[in-house]
Simulated scan of single mutants.
Amino acid sequence: MKKLFVFLAAGFSSAILSCAPMVDYAQIKQQNEIACGNNNAVGCRNLGNMYYNGYGVPKNVNLALQYYDKACNLNDAESCNLVGIIYYRLDQQKNKDLYMKYFQKACDLNLGVGCYNIGSIYMAKSNLKTAWKYLDKACNLGYYQGCDDLKKIPKYKPTLEELKKVDYGEYPKNWKKLVKDYFYDAEIFIDPEPKIKFKYPPKKAYECKGPDKSSCRYFWKACVKVNARNRMGGYTGWTPVPLEIDIHTHKVSLPIEAKVQLMGNSGFPCDLYMKTNTFE
Rank of each mutant, 00 (worst) to 15 (best):
Y206E: 05
K204P: 03
I153G: 05
V226D: 02
D69V: 09
A35G: 13
K157L: 13
D271G: 09
Y68N: 02
V166R: 11
L128S: 06
Y235D: 10
E207A: 14
A228P: 07
Y51I: 02
C139W: 02
E193I: 06
D148P: 06
Y184M: 04
P202M: 01
Y171K: 09
Y134H: 12
V61G: 05
F183I: 05
K152Q: 08
E207S: 13
D91C: 07
K275A: 13
T278D: 03
N75L: 08
F7T: 02
D136M: 13
Y184F: 07
S18E: 12
S13H: 12
P211K: 02
E161W: 14
G264Y: 15
Y200E: 01
K251H: 15
R231L: 14
Y171A: 07
D181N: 09
K3V: 10
F268R: 04
A258H: 06
G43I: 01
Y55I: 02
M263T: 14
Y87S: 09
L98W: 07
F5A: 00
E78L: 11
L150A: 06
I196Q: 00
K203F: 05
L65C: 06
Y273H: 01
P158S: 13
C223D: 00
M100F: 13
I34R: 12
M50L: 02
D91M: 04
M263C: 15
A71D: 03
L4R: 06
Y116I: 04
K195Q: 14
V23W: 03
S120R: 12
K177D: 10
P154Y: 04
I85S: 09
G169D: 11
S13F: 12
N110V: 03
G54S: 02
N174S: 11
A35Y: 05
Y273T: 01
S215C: 09
I245E: 03
K155N: 10
Y200N: 05
Y235S: 10
D108N: 13
A124C: 04
